[in-house]
């Protein structure tokens, strides 16, 4: 008898999101397995950010189903759309923190406070333990000596690594990245990518929206091409980049390489 296949960490079926009349997500199907690195690529306005923000309910979807670690966050019953109570959504969110394009560090808190805020305030863990762990995480992302700095005193690359440290401090099951290097000066990109790569190598589950194609190719287990509000094509990086099928993906890839 073979062992039953492990349940995916994230299961998304028929996910829809509209802003007024505009349908931004038109039925997204997406599975993310534990320990897997998933890249979402695609043209601007295709819905990548919206998809990411719907997964952790920063945006409330308009329809469809999301199951996170076996817990149903939302589903449709006939024509009615239901989602779990705010408390459940909050707990899920705390387990899949997000790293943003513009860092969004708490401007009024030091680097260390940024990292300890979630564990202290949300998870209510003891301060001594949280601070020790936060300092260790900061050391891991190469920022131990910046603990008492304010975000305004850091470079973009350092800010983004603090944001990653803030996510890690939540002891997450999954980290969501929305274009983590798009706002960085070119010479600062490598440091952030290295940090993300280290997470992947340690087996952290990652969902990354990125325009860094070389990086996606090296790191991804799966690449999904998001366009026009749904996932047009999925596969291994080699399959997506070397043997694109749809016309849209072909022209997207050639436009990226151009």
């Amino acid at each position: 008898m073979s062992a039953p296949a492990a349940r995916p960490l994230v299961e998304i079926r028929g996910l829809r999101k509209s802003y007024g009349q505009t349908e931004v997500l038109a039925g997204v199907e997406l599975m993310v397995a534990k320990g897997e690195v998933t890249f979402l690529i695609g043209p601007s306005g295709g819905g990548k950010s919206t998809l990411l923000r719907c997964i952790n309910f920063l945006e409330t979807p308009s329809g469809g189903e999301i199951i996170f670690d076996g817990e149903r966050l939302c589903h449709e019953d006939g024509n009615l759309f239901h989602h779990a109570p705010e408390r459940v959504l909050r707990e899920a969110r705390a387990r899949m923190p997000m790293v943003f394009q513009h860092f969004n560090l708490f401007a009024h808190r030091t680097v260390l406070q940024n990292v300890t805020e979630g564990p202290l305030v949300v998870q209510k863990r003891p301060r001594a333990e949280v601070e020790a762990e936060a300092l260790a995480i900061l050391a891991r992302v190469g920022l131990a000596d910046r603990a008492s700095f304010y975000p305004a005193q850091l470079s973009g690359g350092q800010k983004q690594r603090v944001a990653i440290a803030r996510a890690l401090a939540m002891r997450p099951s999954l980290i969501l990245f929305d274009e983590p290097t798009s706002a960085l000066d070119p010479e600062l990109v490598a440091g952030v990518l290295d940090t993300i790569r280290a997470l992947a190598e340690e087996g952290m589950t990652l969902v990354v929206v990125s325009h860094e194609m070389k990086f996606a190719r090296h790191l991804a287990d799966k690449v999904h091409f998001v366009a026009g509000g749904h996932i047009e094509e999925s596969g291994t990086p080699d399959r997506i980049f070397d043997a694109p099928e749809s016309e849209r993906l072909k022209s997207f890839i050639s436009s990226i390489l151009a």
Binding site: R95, M98, H102, N104, L105, E117, V122, Q123
Partner: peptide
């Protein structure tokens, strides 16, 4: 973004 960051850590 400050609000998003707060919400995203629960």
């Amino acid at each position: 973004g400050q609000r998003d960051a707060g919400l995203s850590i629960g």
